[in-house]
């Protein structure tokens, strides 16, 4: 029973992340947040099912995910800073320079 609840919560989390990305018109940072949410929702699954299968692999994976997510957001934010210097805005609808 608990198993299905856990999967449900992680699915809910992923769905909110998706919706967040689609509805959010403007902000790149919010999009980054949603992506991080997907990472974490996967994390929930791993942690619970590692306990469920009685071996530690899941938790190791969770740790890995957190590390990688951190690196990811670091690079993403760095790039957004650079973009901000050019576009002076974080609004994704302004990112339409490439045409054709």
């Amino acid at each position: 029973m608990l198993r299905s609840i856990i999967i449900l919560t992680s699915m809910m989390l992923v769905l909110t992340a998706f919706v967040g990305m689609i509805i959010n018109r403007r902000n790149l940072i919010v999009m980054l947040l949603c992506v991080e949410m997907i990472f974490l929702s996967a994390n929930i699954n791993f942690v619970y099912f590692s306990r469920f299968h009685q071996h530690v692999h899941g938790q190791v994976m969770a740790l890995m995910i957190i590390v990688v997510a951190a690196a990811e957001s670091a690079v993403a934010l760095a790039l957004m800073v650079l973009m901000y210097r050019q576009y002076h805005t974080v609004d994704s609808s302004k990112l339409v320079n490439i045409r054709g």
Partner: peptide
């Protein structure tokens, strides 16, 4: 263009890894 491409790529890439 490079900045725009990089931002889009990282977000899309992150999304797909997610």
């Amino acid at each position: 263009d490079a900045q725009e491409a990089a931002c889009k790529y990282i977000i899309m890439g992150a999304f797909s890894t997610g």
